[in-house]
C-alpha cells in the first residue's frame, strides 16, 4: 500500500521532486512552530508584562527581543510563532470543512445529474463568481454574532470560499467516471446508487483533492491575513494573527520602524510559498498528464551479431 502511494513520487523527475521537497521542508518548519509554540515562544501571544514589568514599547530587535517589540508591548518573535499556530489551525479547519462539504456535494451532483445537478452547479458558480475576500468578509460578519471573533468563525468564513472548487473538480470527474464500464459493472451486480457512489466513484474521483487542498490552504493563508488586516478576522484577544499585526504595523513603517511589519510579513510569504510548492509538486506527481516519468539510461552491451553465434560456439 505504501509502495502504491510512493510510486508516483519515485517516478518524478528532478524539478518536480525538488519543488515538492522544498515545499514540504518549509511547511514542516511552520508545523513545528505551530505545534511547539508554547515551548518555542519566550512569551505568550498576548503577554505584555514579564514579572509584572511591562515590555518596552517598539524596542528594536536585540538579544532580549529577537524581533523587537510592538506598540502594544508585545514581543514580535512570540507573536510570529503563535501566529503560525493560528494560521495553520484556521486553514486546516477550513480545508477540512470545505472538503467535507464540497466533495460529497460534487459526487452527488455529478452522479444524480438532471435537475439537482443544475441547481447545485448554479449555486456553486454563483459563489465562485464572488470576489473571495468580499465573500469572506460577509460571512465573518454574519458569523461574528453567532460564534464570536475566534478561530472557528474565521475558519468557517474561509470554508465558504473554497467549497465550490472541490465541488467543481469532483463533479466533473464524477460525470465522466459515471459512464465508465466499472460503474456499469457495479450496476450489473445490483449495487445501489449509494454504494456505487461510495465504493466505486469516491476512490476514483478524489485523486486531485489533495492537490487542490494544498493550493487552497496557501490561498487561505493569504485570505485570512487579509481579513485580519482589514479588521474582520480573529480578534486580537482571541489569538495572535499575522494580518492583524501587519495592520498595527502600518503606522510604524512610516516612522522607520521596520521590524513590526517585516517579520509577520515574511512569515506569511514563506508559509504561502511552502504550501504552494507542495501543491504544485503534488500536482506534477499525481497528475499523469503533467508527470514526466524519469528516463532511465540504458546501457547496451556491444552488439554480438547473430552470425557470431553460429554453431560450434561452446557452452
Amino acid at each position: 500500500m505504501l509502495n502504491r502511494l510512493l510510486a508516483p513520487f519515485r517516478n518524478t523527475t528532478g524539478l518536480a521532486r525538488w519543488i515538492l521537497v522544498t515545499g514540504i521542508v518549509i511547511t514542516i518548519a511552520f508545523v513545528v512552530m505551530a505545534v511547539f509554540a508554547p515551548w518555542l515562544a519566550p512569551l505568550d501571544f498576548n503577554q505584555q508584562k514579564v514579572d509584572g514589568v511591562k515590555l518596552p514599547k517598539l524596542a528594536a530587535p536585540s538579544d532580549d527581543y529577537w524581533f523587537g517589540t510592538s506598540d502594544q508591548f508585545y514581543d514580535v518573535f512570540s507573536r510570529v510563532i503563535w501566529g503560525a499556530r493560528t494560521a495553520l489551525v484556521v486553514v486546516t479547519l477550513s480545508v477540512l470543512f470545505s472538503v467535507l462539504i464540497g466533495v460529497p456535494l460534487g459526487l452527488i451532483s455529478g452522479f444524480v445529474g438532471g435537475w439537482t445537478d443544475r441547481m447545485l452547479v448554479f449555486v456553486m458558480d454563483a459563489l465562485y463568481a464572488f470576489p473571495t475576500l468580499l465573500l469572506a468578509i460577509v460571512f465573518s460578519f454574519l458569523l461574528r454574532d453567532a460564534l464570536g471573533g475566534g478561530v472557528t468563525a474565521a475558519a468557517l468564513s474561509l470554508t465558504v470560499i473554497y467549497i465550490p472548487q472541490y465541488f467543481r473538480v469532483v463533479r466533473n470527474t464524477t460525470v465522466s467516471a459515471r459512464e465508465s464500464t466499472y460503474v456499469e459493472a457495479a450496476r450489473a451486480i445490483g449495487a445501489k446508487n449509494s454504494s456505487i457512489m461510495g465504493r466505486y466513484l469516491f476512490g476514483n474521483v478524489i485523486q486531485s483533492v489533495p492537490v487542490i487542498g494544498t493550493l487552497n490552504a496557501a490561498d487561505a493563508i493569504g485570505t485570512l491575513a487579509a481579513l485580519g488586516f482589514l479588521g474582520f478576522g480573529i480578534q486580537p484577544n482571541e489569538a495572535s494573527e499575522w494580518g492583524y499585526d501587519l495592520n498595527r504595523a502600518l503606522d510604524d513603517a512610516s516612522s522607520g520602524i521596520w521590524w513590526t511589519a517585516l517579520f509577520p510579513g515574511l512569515a506569511i510569504v514563506f508559509l504561502i510559498t511552502g504550501l504552494t510548492l507542495v501543491g504544485e509538486g503534488l500536482n506534477e506527481t499525481v497528475n499523469p498528464s503533467l508527470r514526466k516519468r524519469r528516463i532511465r539510461k540504458v546501457e547496451m552491451p556491444p552488439n554480438e551479431p547473430t552470425t557470431a553465434l553460429v554453431e560450434g560456439r561452446t557452452r
Binding site: R296, K297, V298, E299, N303, P305, T306
Partner: peptide, 22 residues
C-alpha cells in the same frame, strides 16, 4: 535491418523490447 536492438530503461533494468532482429 540487421541485428536491430531496441532497449528501454526501467526501474528494474533495461527492457529488451527488441533484441537482435534482422
Amino acid at each position: 535491418a540487421q541485428d536491430i536492438r531496441i532497449w528501454y530503461g526501467s526501474e528494474r533494468g533495461p527492457v529488451k523490447a527488441v533484441d537482435g532482429v534482422s
